[in-house]
């Protein structure tokens, strides 16, 4: 009955996700789906005064891999700066997931990271923030 892919951790996170829910208000929010699979992930992120990730929540539906990945990612990025988030590598997330993934499933695993980065890049960097100094 053992499965290479579906280790206890993945199933645990699928059943009891971490950081699941919404943040209102939040500094940025982004959603993306993987229409091919029907996976969808939405992230709400709140920053502190140093532009570090103060809190993050996610919600969505999909396969165990995409959903477990969102739990692991949101847990990992708390306290990071936006720049660190932008530099967060695919390899690092795949390492966190820690199970060998086929090409088709890598897309599921990386959906939450794609959402996070799209959201983070949508936030203007401090120098570009209009009206901030007014």
């Amino acid at each position: 009955m053992s499965s290479d892919l579906y280790r206890e951790q993945i199933i645990d996170l699928y059943e009891n996700p971490l950081n699941f829910g919404e943040l209102d208000p939040c500094d940025f929010s982004y959603e993306e789906d993987n229409p091919l699979c029907g996976d969808v992930v939405r992230l709400d992120v709140r920053l502190d005064s140093n532009r570090r990730i103060a809190d993050v929540r996610w919600r969505g539906e999909g396969c165990a891999i995409s959903q477990a990945s969102a739990s692991l990612l949101t847990e990992e990025i708390k306290g990071m700066t936006l720049e660190e988030v932008k530099a967060f590598s695919k390899e690092r997330l795949l390492e966190l997931i820690g199970v060998p993934l086929s090409m088709a499933r890598v897309k599921c695993a990386l959906l939450s990271l794609k959402v996070l980065k799209a959201g983070a890049y949508g936030i203007p960097s401090p120098g570009e923030m209009r009206g901030e100094d007014d």
Binding site: L36, G38, D39, E61, G62, C63, A64, I65
Partner: peptide, 28 residues
Amino acid sequence: IHPHDIAQILDEEGIAIRAGHHCAMPLH
């Protein structure tokens, strides 16, 4: 259980099925 997970676990047993929308998104 998401169809992808079903297909993946079946694959470990050598069983090949399709999972997804089978090119029929409006139907789903």
